[in-house]
Each structure stands twice: as structure tokens, then as C-alpha cells.
């Protein structure tokens, strides 16, 4: 080290004092948070892998629908499946673009938790809070950046999935146009769903200040809670009713192409999940404002 420090110790020749026109603005804090996301290699790798995993799952799904359709067409469908009634591959195929969500939401939840909890783990949070002592803009900017990244990951994955799936589905005449009812909305809402997953997960990471705890809790909310409620659904009539309003369940309805009877519509699903995201975000903002760091 000693070789590098022959520089004059004087930090500047100018008179000390704030420079005109410089100070905290929300767009500057956004830019800072964007720099943070793009300058940690593991974060960038996680984002890229999320796209790959989501597209990969969609390709598998498309291939599965094509196989099913072929089996039905040449009458070779196994008897047990036939008894269940296989549903219509032509209808199911429409969900191909959003079929990566099942793992995509898990990866985005981890990403959002890691973005904030790693700051607590490394002590970076203190630098962040000193640079933006109002704190609320810092957390909001980080949430906006995470939600934007998640939205783009969802939109891009769904769009690429759609494009790659068409030739596969086309072999069985299952291919469909973007203009078909609900398809484009489903592709866009794949992004919206992930954006809201990011908001909820980042809030969890903020409240828990711990990467492992945050990821486990997010998985619990999106995956485990619906299963538990399903297992308990026989106990009381209200349990399955309530289960529809879980954030993950409602969000999946938002990204659906068609709404089933008795289920939430896309808009209702979106509103329910949006309400959850807002509630988590407000809790995280309050905790951030009050806490010692």
C-alpha cells in the first residue's frame, strides 16, 4: 500500500462547502441502486439464469402439450389418463408462455431478498443509509429497481417462450397468435406477477434482515402456505375460500389466460396480489424508518 500514497493529502484546493445543484434526488438514488444491482456478479448471474430456467420450463411444457395432443390424435393415450379426461391441449397450450412462473417466482423471490438482505449481512446498509439518510427513498428505489428487473425478466421470458414454443406446438397444430384472447395479457402479467413477487420478497428481506430467513419465508408464503391450506381445506368451508386470496394463488390467476369459474379473474387476482405487495412494502418502510442500523 505504501507505494501508492505519495499523493498530496489535501482533498481539494477549493473552499469547502456543498456544490450548487448537487444533492439527493429520487432519480439519482435509482441510478445508485441500479449500479448496485449490476455490479455484483452473482446477482447478474441469478437474473440471467432466471430467464433461462423460465424459457426452459416453457419449452418443456410446449413439448408436453404437443406429445399429449399427438397421443390423443393417434388414440394411444394411456387408459388411466383417458379416464381422467385429459382436458384440451389446445387450451392448455395457451398457458405455455407463463409456465416458467412456477420456478421463476422462486428465483425472483430469492433475488429480491438477496438484494436487500446482503446489505444487512455485509454492513453495506450503513453506507446506504448514510448516503440517503431519509432511508425511504433508498428502500423505494431499491424496490423499484428490483420490481423493474423482475418485470422485464418475466416479460422477456414469456415473450421468448412464446416464440420458441410456436414451432414445437405447431407440429400438432396447437400454435396460436399473440392476438388470441388473453394471450398478450398473460405474457405481460407474467412480468407483473414477478414484479409483485419482487416487492413482497424485498419487503420480507427488509423486515427479517437475513438472506436465509427471507428466502425461506418467501418460499413459505408462495409455495408452502397454499399446500397447507389445501390439506386443511376439508376442515372448514372457509379455508378454500381464503386460500384463493393468498398472494401466490391470486398472482397465478392474474397471469392466467382464461379465468375458471368461481376463481378470481385476472384483474381481481392482480388487485389482491397488489394489495399484499403494498401491505408488505408499507411494513418494510415503517421498519426501515424506525430502526437503528
Amino acid at each position: 500500500m505504501s507505494a501508492h500514497t505519495t499523493t498530496s493529502p489535501s482533498p481539494t484546493k477549493n473552499a469547502p462547502g456543498p456544490r450548487a445543484g448537487s444533492g439527493i434526488t429520487f432519480s439519482r438514488v435509482l441510478r445508485s441502486e441500479w449500479i448496485k444491482v449490476t455490479t455484483v456478479r452473482s446477482t447478474v448471474i441469478l437474473i440471467a439464469s432466471t430467464v433461462l430456467v423460465m424459457v426452459g420450463l416453457a419449452v418443456l411444457a410446449a413439448w408436453g402439450y404437443a406429445q399429449l395432443a399427438q397421443s390423443i390424435n393417434d388414440g394411444s393415450l394411456p387408459a388411466d389418463l383417458q379416464a381422467q379426461g385429459p382436458g384440451s391441449p389446445a387450451v392448455d397450450a395457451l398457458t405455455t408462455p407463463s409456465s416458467g412462473l412456477i420456478f421463476g417466482q422462486l428465483l425472483i423471490a430469492s433475488l429480491a431478498v438477496v438484494l436487500i438482505a446482503s446489505e444487512w449481512a455485509t454492513g453495506m446498509i450503513r453506507s446506504t443509509m448514510v448516503a440517503v439518510p431519509g432511508r425511504t427513498p433508498a428502500l423505494l428505489a431499491k424496490t423499484v429497481v428490483a420490481a423493474a428487473v423482475a418485470f422485464l425478466v418475466g416479460l422477456l421470458s414469456a415473450m421468448v417462450s412464446y416464440l420458441i414454443a410456436q414451432p414445437i406446438l405447431g407440429s400438432q397444430d396447437l400454435d396460436f397468435a399473440l392476438t388470441e384472447e388473453g394471450v398478450l395479457a398473460s405474457i405481460i402479467n407474467t412480468g407483473t406477477f414477478l414484479a409483485l413477487v419482487a416487492v413482497i420478497s424485498m419487503s420480507l428481506g427488509t423486515l427479517l434482515r437475513n438472506t436465509a430467513g427471507g428466502v425461506v419465508t418467501a418460499v413459505g408464503i408462495f409455495f408452502v402456505l397454499p399446500v397447507i391450506l389445501q390439506l386443511l381445506s376439508g376442515l372448514a368451508a372457509w379455508i378454500p375460500d381464503a386460500a384463493r386470496f393468498l398472494p401466490g394463488e391470486a398472482g397465478n390467476k392474474m397471469a392466467a389466460v382464461t379465468a375458471a369459474e368461481d376463481a378470481l379473474t385476472q384483474l381481481q387476482g392482480g388487485l389482491v396480489m397488489g394489495a399484499w405487495a403494498l401491505a408488505f412494502l408499507v411494513a418494510a418502510l415503517i421498519a426501515t424508518k424506525k430502526r437503528d442500523v
Binding site: G21, S22, G23, I24, T25, R28, V29, R31, S32, E33, I35, K36, T39, V40, R41, S42, S118, E119, T122, G123, M124, I125, R126, S127, V130, A131, V132
Partner: peptide, 28 residues
């Protein structure tokens, strides 16, 4: 300007990018 804790830095980010992220909040 304060040095409170030399460890208040994300360990996986470079010093240059850390400074860049800090500077960005004030348009430095």
C-alpha cells in the same frame, strides 16, 4: 463525510463500483 465502519461495504463489489454507487446518490 464519515468513516464509521470500514466493513460497511458489500464484499462482492469492487471499491470503484462501491464509490460509484455512493456518488450516484448525489450526482457526484
Amino acid at each position: 463525510g464519515a468513516l464509521l465502519d470500514a466493513k460497511a461495504v458489500h464484499t462482492k463489489r469492487s471499491a470503484y463500483n462501491h464509490l460509484r454507487a455512493m456518488a450516484a446518490t448525489h450526482g457526484i
